[in-house]
Design a protein around this nucleic acid. Structure first.
Lengths: 196, 196
DNA sequence: TTTGATCTTCCTACTAGTTGGTAGTTTCGT
DNA sequence: ACGAAACTACCAACTAGTAGGAAGATCAAA
């Protein structure tokens, strides 16, 4: 009989929430304890140190991402549709304010000042997303589902930068719809068979 | 007789340095005092509170940006060349590690948890850059110096997102050259008279 | 089925160090 | 002599982290 929600998961969820809003140095064990409803010391039982906590969070974040990607690849055959689904995922998260920013975007900007264990995990996340997008680009190009103007791995980096830049812009302006405004032409440009 | 470097400027410079590396909550008055070589309390003489300090920093950052843009517009007539110069500015900053990240990109990602006075100033910065880029896009389009596929203000947002996304990627991978790899095709796409 | 040992989880109470900020004083150039 | 700019010496609040104990749950042996 497995619990639907463990304290450890609650701690991770509130950490993610706090991390998205203010970064690594923007929250404390006291903040988490208030949200979860347990004492500070109890958090140390589950995650001995802050580094342990955030390292585990990022590790799971990447693993969840890998799992979601696997399902997406299985359900959606067309490469362009995959990129659209990826963009729509973030558009939805930003617009309903549920997870309006990527944990790893937050941490990547703080990278030089992060504990190395966390920094490594963050870099790993970006390597994963980047190589996944590159594989999508390559396959889509070969099968005529995408029209590329650069090498697949360059297009992948460019697309990733657009997504994360759009995420930042939406936050900077306080206007969620900016994300889709930026992504729409980016996806359009990758669409084949546009008469010209 | 004006000094070439005032203490106040030294404080702002070291604040910028610290801010770029770890964000608003990633540095303290103690850190600044160590770099500048004065006591913590002396910093409060120049900037009564941390909010005052960072608000002033961002205000000047925007003003400096506006001045640089004015000079750039004056020296470089061609719109595409302006965009290239803007991209090259950041490429150089990132590659020589002098100012490898934008102060306002850092703060924008932390926006929800920032003091409102600082947050407002950050939003102002992005509005400025965005409307400047939009004006460059519009002028360049009219004069045939740029080939746009969307409305000028959309192209401006997309270009801005690419620049800031590329900045983040360069930091995430720890590879400065990633910035130029991403910007090159973005600028290429805006270049007119490419045979197709 | 009851006992007892062990494990997990949470607690109170505490620590040493850091945070942004203040009060009041001295130093120094004009 | 006067203001600016620096200083020493604080402060209350907060930081991550620790020590040690109480309440339950689990499970094996009697």
């Amino acid at each position: 009989m497995s619990n639907l929600s463990t304290t450890s998961d609650d701690i991770l969820a509130s950490t993610r929430h706090l991390l998205i809003s203010g970064g690594y140095n923007g929250f404390s064990y006291a903040d988490i304890s208030e949200i979860v409803g347990i004492r500070k010391a109890s958090i140390h039982h589950h995650f001995p140190s802050k580094v342990d906590l955030v390292r585990e969070l990022v590790k799971r974040y990447r693993e969840d991402g890998q799992a979601s990607v696997a399902i997406l690849e299985q359900k959606v055959p067309n490469a362009l549709d995959i990129l659209k689904a990826y963009a729509n995922h973030w558009a939805a998260c930003i617009e309903d304010a549920s997870r309006p920013y990527c944990v790893c975007a937050m941490l990547a900007s703080e990278l030089p000042s992060l504990p190395t264990e966390v920094a490594t995990e963050v870099t790993n996340f970006f390597r994963f997303i980047s190589s996944w997008l590159a594989s999508v680009m390559e396959r889509g190009s070969k099968q005529g589902e995408l029209s590329l103007t650069s090498a697949p791995h360059v297009e992948a980096e460019a697309f990733l930068a657009t997504v994360y830049g759009a995420m930042l812009s939406a936050r900077a302006y306080g206007k969620p719809e900016v994300f889709s405004t930026i992504l729409a032409p980016a996806l359009n440009r990758l669409t084949p068979n546009v008469s010209h």
